[in-house]
Computed example of a mutant assay.
Amino acid sequence: MNKKGHVLNAILLALGLGVILSVDPRTFQPNDVESYLSIAEKIGQLSLPIVLGALFPDVDTAFGKHRKTLHNLPVLVTFLVFPLIFNNLHFVWIGVATHYVLDMVGSKRGIALFYPLSPQEYDLPTGVATSSKYADPVTLVVTVAELGVLAGVHYYLFSLDVSLAAAAASFSAIL
């Protein structure tokens, strides 16, 4: 996907995830001003990390091999582990992961998930050219699907609004 698509995806993810993490559908009161303030605060907290994460993989256009050097699982694992070690950069991994999803599902070229071990690029047949008139609609569809998955994980598996260590403990308890 192109830069515009990644920015659109990140902004919509920050908005949608802010709502998902702030709203318990069983107890939300739409008349409550404090609820809306809580949602706005959460969106503000998520915006910068998710946008930075969504844009970071394309730094490899300035060096290395685009869609290989920073578009792979070792980079994603680094962003997953980083908050566990340094207790910062929470939610950046969501931006990076959704960047990968958008490049794999939304564009024809795909990404080299296992680089540097393999230069093979993986994609799905759903992709369009980044300059296509369908690029923005595909970005919207992929973003809605990503938000659906994140909502499902948050509401039914484990809270995304906790540290990754707590999420891992919750997930291992489920298994």
Rank of each mutant, 00 (worst) to 15 (best):
N72S: 10
L70A: 11
I39S: 05
R109T: 09
F79M: 14
I50M: 02
L46P: 07
P83I: 10
V59F: 13
P83K: 10
A97L: 15
V51E: 14
K108W: 01
F56C: 11
P49N: 08
G44P: 01
P74N: 03
M104V: 04
H99P: 08
N87Y: 06
Y100G: 14
H71Y: 07
F91D: 02
V105G: 00
N72M: 01
V101Y: 08
V101T: 14
L55M: 15
L89R: 09
V75Y: 13
Y100H: 04
K42G: 01
N72Q: 12
V75W: 12
V96G: 03
Y100T: 07
S107L: 04
Y100F: 14
L89T: 06
L76R: 14
K68Y: 13
F56R: 06
H90V: 11
Y100Q: 05
H66A: 05
L52W: 06
S47W: 07
E41S: 14
V51D: 08
P83L: 04
L89W: 06
V51T: 14
A112Y: 00
G106N: 00
H66F: 02
G44K: 10
G64P: 04
V92R: 11
I94D: 07
K68G: 01
Q45N: 14
L46H: 04
V75G: 14
L89P: 02
A97C: 08
M104Q: 00
K65F: 05
S47T: 14
R109N: 03
K65I: 08
L76T: 15
L76M: 14
S107D: 02
L48H: 03
D60F: 08
V59T: 10
P74I: 01
G106P: 00
E41F: 13
V101H: 09
N87A: 10
K108H: 00
L73P: 06
L80T: 06
V77G: 14
I85Q: 00
Y100V: 06
Q45V: 08
H71F: 02
F79Y: 13
A62L: 12
V81H: 10
L48N: 06
I50F: 03
S47C: 11
L76F: 15
G44W: 01
I85E: 05
G110P: 03
V81Y: 12
F56K: 12
L73M: 15
K42S: 05
L52P: 01
G110R: 02
P83E: 02
G95C: 11
L48P: 02
L55F: 10
P49D: 05
W93P: 05
V51R: 13
V75R: 12
F86E: 06
L70W: 04
V81L: 15
A97V: 10
A62P: 02
F82G: 07
H71E: 09
D103V: 03
P57V: 09
A54Y: 13
R67A: 01
N87T: 00
M104I: 05
K65Y: 03
G106F: 05
N88W: 11
S107M: 05
G64Y: 09
V92K: 12
T69H: 03
I94N: 09
Y100N: 14
F82I: 15
L80N: 09
P49C: 04
T78H: 09
V81Q: 11
H90R: 13
V51K: 14
L89M: 11
